[in-house]
């Protein structure tokens, strides 16, 4: 299985865009900027919704109103983060594929986090009983916060598992 992914990683690393990114001194920070800007929009719109479900902070809007208001930029942020992340991955794919922190982040935590987020957005209205949020809603918000903190933990751990 690892051989299969390494073969794809080698091909990806030799594509024109990957060679352009890894061969340029200025392109890499700009690709990182794309990834981090997308992540800021994604995390910065996910956490306020989860915290609203938990009943923490201002209650001017219900969870479903907040979810609707943030929806477009939430997913725009996700698409920008995926685009930047894909380009970052392409530039050093063979280094990332065997990295256990990267494997856990992209192979496990990110898919679960995204699916969980879709469920939270989908059910935001059903979690509400008037101005109050049901216990299920609070648990859902808490789980999502923990999931994204786990993703960030795995991401910052990637350099600790790098082999040179």
């Amino acid at each position: 299985m690892l051989d299969f992914f390494m073969a794809i990683a080698k091909w990806l690393q030799n594509t024109w865009w990957a060679l352009d990114i890894s061969g340029s001194t200025w392109a890499y920070p700009f690709v990182q900027l794309t990834h981090f800007t997308g992540l800021s929009l994604w995390i910065g719109t996910n956490l306020p919704l989860d915290l609203r479900l938990l009943g923490i902070g201002t209650k001017r809007q219900t969870a479903s109103q907040l979810s609707d208001a943030l929806f477009a930029w939430n997913w725009t942020g996700f698409c920008i983060a995926v685009l930047g992340g894909f380009m970052l991955f392409s530039s050093a794919a063979t280094k990332y594929v065997p990295n256990p922190a990267f494997e856990i982040k992209l192979g496990l935590l990110v898919p679960i986090g995204v699916l969980w987020h879709i469920l939270v957005q989908w059910h935001a209205r059903r979690f509400e009983h008037g101005p109050r949020v049901s216990l299920f809603g609070k648990v859902a918000g808490m789980v999502e916060i923990l999931l994204w903190f786990s993703v960030i933990t795995a991401a910052v751990s990637i350099p600790n598992f790098e082999t040179h």
Binding site: S40, L41, W42, I43, G44, T45, L47, I152
Partner: peptide
């Protein structure tokens, strides 16, 4: 640091 920065930039951007 990363979580705080994402929360800061994301919420301000909106």
């Amino acid at each position: 640091h990363y979580s705080g920065f994402f929360l800061l930039v994301g919420s301000t951007a909106i």
